[in-house]
Design a protein around this nucleic acid. Structure first.
Length: 337
DNA sequence: AATACGGGGCG
DNA sequence: CGCCCAGTATT
């Protein structure tokens, strides 16, 4: 245990990543910057989060600025990053923090919207030096391989992480474990030759590091057909707020799902009746994959009385960005090869 | 315990 | 194309 800790921390001190939210003293990082980074990185790879992080902190440099900003501005900064509930929760939590001050403990952070066990442990250890072991996808994979566990339960992973955590340097230890998982002990092609703890790894000893952990079973992707109308063009269009959980809070083209029992023309008729609009020609079709569903969206032109709004200021999903591109006058409707 | 929730990267 | 990513909230 002590040898494993020393080996990993030595590797981390020499080869750990230099990331923008790691500025400051170890164990005493800026809580706001750590918090934003941790939320942004939920289910999001670091390489992708970097650009959003810079953009977000530029727009909302302090928790007070974030708390006073309109939600639409926060969602606009989050545009394209996915899992938009993160932005809504972060905004709501910022208002609590602006009024009551930053929590200073795991339990205090855990009580904020959008802050679960992982994020609370990360902030508590990185910014407040609290001895809390994080449990994320990296930690799960590294520990599963160290112990050669095919299907480690969440309880098992947390217990291992708790036992292994270096109480002297909890923040650095958590970062070290995650860095190892992200840069060496990777899912597909781990670089065991460069691993500082290979000597302690049972999966490596068995010669099958990628056998652990076993892939998660995932729900099959659902196919969804939908119709949308573009009233306007790629720059100015009639937009509606999306309600519900899917893309909730974002704006988008007026859309109706095509039910299994109906044709797309019937759905289009329903949509245009709701909008009091007249359908026109088919502009094109967009295919959009979203982890758990595959959306085939037919986009029609339409005429109505609603005033188009500038799309540049609206927060849109990738799906709606693709759909709007069909209205770009510069782009040929039928691309020539 | 199971499910919903985005989008992109990589082998 | 399949699997995964610094997970959380809801049911």
């Amino acid at each position: 245990m002590a040898a494993l800790r020393a080996a990993l921390l030595a590797w981390f001190d020499a080869s750990g990543r230099d990331l923008p939210w790691r500025a400051g003293i170890e164990g005493r990082r800026d809580p706001y910057r750590v918090w934003v980074a941790e939320v942004l990185l939920q289910q999001t790879q670091v390489s992708r989060g970097l650009g959003y992080y810079e953009r977000f902190l530029d727009a909302f440099p302090t928790v007070q600025v974030l708390a006073q900003a309109p939600l639409e501005a926060v969602l606009k900064a989050w545009e394209g990053c996915g899992y938009y509930a993160r932005a809504r929760h972060l905004h709501r939590a910022a208002q609590q923090v602006a009024a009551q001050g930053f929590p200073t403990s795991y339990a205090g952070w855990r009580a904020l919207p959008g802050v679960g066990p992982y994020t609370a442990a990360a902030i508590a250890s990185l910014a407040f030096g609290e001895a809390r072991a994080v449990n994320d996808g990296n930690v799960r994979r590294v520990l599963a391989r160290l112990g050669a566990q095919t299907r480690p339960s969440d309880t098992w992973v947390q217990a291992q992480a708790d036992a292994l955590l270096d109480p002297e340097r909890p923040g650095a230890w958590n970062e070290a474990l995650m860095d190892l998982g992200a840069t060496v002990c990777t899912p597909r092609a781990p670089r065991c030759a460069a691993c500082p703890v290979a000597a302690f790894c049972q999966a490596f000893a068995q010669g099958q590091p990628t056998a652990f952990p076993a892939p998660k079973v995932r729900a099959p992707v659902q196919e969804v057909r939908a119709v949308a109308v573009l009233m306007g063009d790629a720059r100015r269009a009639v937009l509606e707020p999306r309600t519900g959980t899917l893309l909730g809070g974002l704006m988008g083209l007026p859309t109706e799902v095509v039910e299994a029992s109906e044709t797309s023309q019937q759905a289009l008729g329903r949509l245009c009746a709701r909008l009091d609009a007249t359908p026109q020609e088919l502009l094109g079709e967009v295919v959009h994959g979203m982890t758990h569903r595959r959306i085939l969206l037919q986009v029609y032109g339409a005429r109505g009385m609603q005033a188009p709004q500038p799309v540049a200021q609206a927060a849109l999903s990738r799906l709606d960005q693709k759909a709007l591109a069909l209205g770009d006058q510069q782009a040929p409707l039928f691309p020539v090869s």
